[in-house]
Every structure is written in structure tokens, then in C-alpha cells.
Computed example of a mutant assay.
Amino acid sequence: MSADSMWSIGELAAQAGVTVKTVRFYSDRGLLPEAARSAGGHRRYGPEALDRLRMIRSLRTLDLPVPDVGRVLDEEGALEDVIAGQLRELGTRMAALRWREAALHLLQDCAPEDRAARLRLIGGMSTPPSTAPLARFWRQWLPPRLPARLTSTIIEHAVPQPPADPTPAQVLTFARLHAFVSGPCHGGRGQHQPTAHRRDEGYRPTVLYDGLIEAYALASPPLLTHRAPHEGQALDCFVAAYAHSAGTRDTPAFRRRLSGMLAADPRIDRYWHLTAELTDPSQPTAGAAHDWLCAALDAQVAEPAA
């Protein structure tokens, strides 16, 4: 390429309609390689630099970071990956903005005397909120050394996902849920755990939770149709989960003992009530299924005394 067919940095800037500072910026970052240097050491560019500079400007109008622009220019097929990454990032940012907007409406629309308390609640979580504190709560609440696949299944069903476009009421509910799992005594083991979580009571938690998952699924249909708690397959599966995990038989005496044990166990009703406000009504929470089954058991063991 002859010297006459090359441009100085100023000429290239004029051709592209940008400043010399812009051309120098991209050159210094390796996005716009110079073709040669003049005798005086000044940068010289060929006509292909103009097309490359125009491409850089087009990519930058989309707010692509400079490293991503370099990838698109130098790696075949990189544009598709970069676009996908930017769309994911943009989705995250937009979700954060929607949560902030709903949180601001929550504060704007409440009574002035409630704003300070609600502001403290909202300030206790990120926007959009992370589900990590909720998952951590369950890892602490569940019996130790459960198989990973069982723990994952329980957490997947017990932890509600933040809505992408929340209402102010959903923001408040999520904030209350985060405050609950972050409060004192919640999620601790030992004296705050249900009896069946304690190894010294002789229960096998893996057997128990495998059975409870099945029992809760069986209890969902009558819950959805608002049937009163009653005997049947769901209750039998529920009791069998406790009996098998304890290495004993399902007998009337065992059912009476189980009814008393479950009535004395610590409860996390607040968690399930808040979770129900955030989940699809067609999918009853495990807490609702557990309460329905406990009520069915209590009704059954009370019959002889009636």
C-alpha cells in the first residue's frame, strides 16, 4: 500500500466523523490497528480502517464494552455470543429496575407512619432479591447429611422465585420472608428442630423425606378442591413415612404417638404463609400439605374418644 493511499489519524477521524481523540482511544486499545508510521513517527491508516471504525462505532452505540467489541471484530461468530450475554445482563438490570419501582410504590402508597418500618424491611434484601438466604435457611433447618439430590429437591419446592415484574405487595411479602429467615432462632438445629430431625430419636431422615414428598403430592388434590382433612392414601403415606424412618410399624398406637409428637414440634407457619402469597395457587405449599395431613391424623386418632 502506497503512502498516498493511507490517511493520517486526523484524516481518518474526518472521514468517519469522529474526533482524533476517539481514533487514538481505539487504536491504543488494539481495536484499530495502524497500517504504518510516517517518517516522523505518526500513525497512518489504510481505507479498511474506516470500515472497521464504523463497525466499532455501531457496536458501541449498543453499549457493548470495549473487550466485547474486540471479540466481535477478531473472532468469527463472536457477535452472537456477545449479543446473548448482553441480553442476559440487560434482563437482570431491567428486573432490578422493576423491583426498585415496585419498592418505591410500596413506600409511596403506604401510610406515613408505616414507611420507616417498610423501609427497614426493604433495606434488608437486594433488588431483585437473592434466594440464597432462603436456601441457606433450609439447609440449616433440614436434618444434617441428607443426600444432595434430596436437599436440592426440597429447596427447589420450598423456595419461591422472585417474580420478574413484582407488585408492591409481592415486594413487601418477599421482604418479610427475608426478615423471617434472617431472624434469631430460625433455621438453627438442636432444640429448634422437629423431633424426627434428631438422630438421637432414632429417625432416618432420608427415608422420612422421601416418603413425605410423596405424601404431600397425594394431599395436593384434596387441598385444591378444599376438601376437609380425611383418612385415605395421602394420610397412610404420611404416617408410613414416619413409621418406616423410625423402623417401626404403622399401628393405631403409633399414630397416636405421632399425632402428639407433631403437635409438639416447632413450626414455621409464618414461612409457609408468606410463601403461599408468592406461589401459584394451583401448587399448594409443603406447609399447607403438612398441616392438612396433621389435621387428618388428629381427627382420626380422636375418633375413639368421641
Rank of each mutant, 00 (worst) to 15 (best):
M1Y: 06
S2F: 10
S5E: 13
M6Q: 14
I9P: 04
I9V: 15
E11S: 12
A14K: 15
A16K: 05
G17W: 02
G17M: 00
V18I: 12
V20G: 01
R24M: 13
S27P: 00
R29H: 14
G30Y: 09
G30E: 06
L31Q: 02
A35C: 04
R37I: 03
G40N: 12
G41C: 00
H42V: 01
R44D: 01
R44S: 03
G46L: 00
P47F: 04
R54D: 06
M55I: 00
I56N: 01
L59D: 01
L59H: 04
T61K: 11
D63Q: 15
L64M: 14
D68S: 14
V69A: 00
G70V: 02
R71D: 11
G77M: 07
A78T: 05
L79D: 00
D81I: 09
V82M: 05
I83Q: 12
A84H: 08
R88T: 13
L90Y: 08
L90M: 12
L90E: 11
T92G: 11
W99Y: 05
R100A: 15
A102M: 02
A103E: 05
Q108R: 15
C110V: 13
A111Q: 15
E113D: 14
E113Y: 03
G123K: 05
M125G: 05
M125D: 04
S126N: 10
P128I: 06
P129Y: 01
S130T: 10
T131R: 09
R139P: 00
L142I: 05
A148M: 08
A148E: 14
R149D: 13
L150N: 08
T151D: 09
S152H: 12
I155W: 05
E156S: 11
H157R: 15
P162T: 07
A164F: 08
A164C: 03
V171E: 04
V171D: 04
L172S: 14
T173W: 08
A175P: 09
A179C: 05
S182Y: 03
G190N: 07
A196L: 08
H197Y: 11
H197V: 01
R199Q: 13
R204Q: 15
T206C: 09
L208R: 12
A217G: 10
A217S: 13
L223D: 04
L224Y: 06
T225W: 00
T225D: 11
R227L: 14
A228Y: 00
E231C: 13
V239G: 02
G247V: 03
R249D: 14
R249K: 11
P252V: 06
S259F: 03
S259H: 10
G260D: 01
L262H: 03
A264F: 02
D265Y: 04
I268Q: 10
T275S: 13
S282K: 09
S282Y: 03
A286S: 13
D291C: 08
L293Y: 06
C294L: 11
D298Y: 04
A299M: 06
E303D: 10
